[in-house]
Design a protein around this nucleic acid. Structure first.
Lengths: 170, 170
DNA sequence: TACGTTGTTCAAAAAAACTTGAACAAATCG
DNA sequence: CGATTTGTTCAAGTTTTTTTGAACAACGTA
C-alpha cells in the first residue's frame, strides 16, 4: 500500500547546473533579438540536451505551461531554429535544435528583418506619392531629400543582408 | 483686452501629414531594434524637421512628457544618433539627427550588440570552467562540444560586425 | 465508436516595459 | 543674491507584451 509514483504525468524534471546556465544564456540572447524569454528557454534546453525532447518534456523540465511550449515551438519552427526529430518509435513528436549559425541567422533575417524592410519600402513610396503633395512647394526640397535618404537606407539594407548571410556561412 | 497667447509655454504645435507619417515610420523601425517607441518619435521628428529642435519643442510637438524627451535624447546621444546643434544664440540646447547610416549602425552595434557579445564570451568561459565540473565525466563530451559551438558563434559574431560596418560605409 | 493521449487556441492573468509628472538640480539673468 | 528658465531623476501609473490554463480539436488505439 505504498505510493510509488503519485503524480507520474506532471512531475518536474531537474536540470543540471550547466543546463540551467546555458538556458539563462539563451534567454539573455533572444532578448537582444526582441524575442520572448520562453523562446530562449525552449531553444536553450533543446540545445543543451543530449537527446531530442517532446513538448511534454519541455513543460516538465522548464516548468512552463503547455501553451507557452506549443507557441514557442511553433515560432522556433518558423524561424528554422528547431525541427522535428525523425524516426522515434513513438506517438508524440520530438524536437531538435538547428545548430548551424548560418541557418539560424538566415531564419531570423527571413522572418523578422526582411518583412520590415519590404513593408518599409512600400510605405515610403506611398509617402512620397501622397503626403508630400500636402507640403508647401517651397518646403518640398528638404522633405524630398530626407525621403530619398530613407529609401537609400532601405536599399542598402537589402543589399547588405545577403552579404551578411554569406559571411556567416563560413 | 484681447488674449493674444493664453498659454504660450505649453501650446501644442501641429505637425504636417508627412511629418506624422515619417515619425510613424521610425516608431515601427525602432521597435525592430528593441528600442522604445519614444526614441522613434524623437529621432523621427528630428529627422524630418528642417531646423534643429529643443527639448521643449519635442515636448510640444510630440505631446510627450519632459521626462520622456530628456531620457530619449540621452539614449539617442549615447547611440550617436543625435547631436547638439552648434552656435544658436540661445540659452537652451538644440538637437540634430545623425543621418549617416554607417554612423547610426555603428552606434547601435557599439551600444547594443557588442556589450552582449563581450559579456557572452566571459559567461561562456566561466561556464566551461565551473559548471562543466559538476557533470558526470561520461556526459562531458556532449556538453563540451556544445559550449565550443557557442564560443565559435561568439567569435564569428566578433569577426562579422566590423565587416558589416565596412559594408555599410558606402 | 469510445477512450486516452497529444497538441492548439485564445481570453484572462501576470509580468515587464514604457511613460508620466512632480520634485529637484543646474545654469543664467537682472 | 533671488528669480526664472532649462534639464534630470525616479517612484508611481499606464500600456504593452508574455504567459497561463482550460476548452477544444486531432489523432491513434482498442
Amino acid at each position: 500500500m505504498d505510493i510509488p509514483s503519485p503524480e507520474p504525468k506532471t512531475e518536474a524534471i531537474a536540470l543540471n547546473l550547466l543546463q540551467r546556465q546555458v538556458i539563462e544564456y539563451f534567454v539573455d540572447g533572444v532578448r537582444v533579438l526582441g524575442l520572448p524569454p520562453s523562446l530562449g528557454e525552449i531553444y536553450g534546453l533543446l540545445f543543451i540536451s543530449p537527446a531530442p525532447l517532446s513538448l511534454d518534456d519541455l513543460v516538465r523540465m522548464l516548468e512552463i505551461s503547455k501553451g507557452s511550449a506549443s507557441q514557442g515551438l511553433r515560432t522556433l519552427k518558423t524561424l528554422g531554429a528547431v525541427r522535428e526529430a525523425e524516426g522515434n518509435g513513438d506517438r508524440r513528436t520530438y524536437y531538435q535544435p538547428a545548430v548551424d549559425l548560418k541557418r539560424l541567422v538566415g531564419g531570423f533575417i527571413r522572418e523578422q528583418v526582411r518583412p520590415h524592410l519590404e513593408s518599409g519600402k512600400s510605405k515610403l513610396q506611398r509617402l512620397q506619392e501622397t503626403a508630400l503633395q500636402d507640403v508647401a512647394p517651397g518646403e518640398r526640397e528638404f522633405y524630398n531629400e530626407r525621403i530619398d535618404r530613407l529609401e537609400s537606407w532601405m536599399k542598402r539594407g537589402g543589399q547588405v543582408l545577403p552579404m551578411l548571410q554569406k559571411l556567416l556561412g563560413q
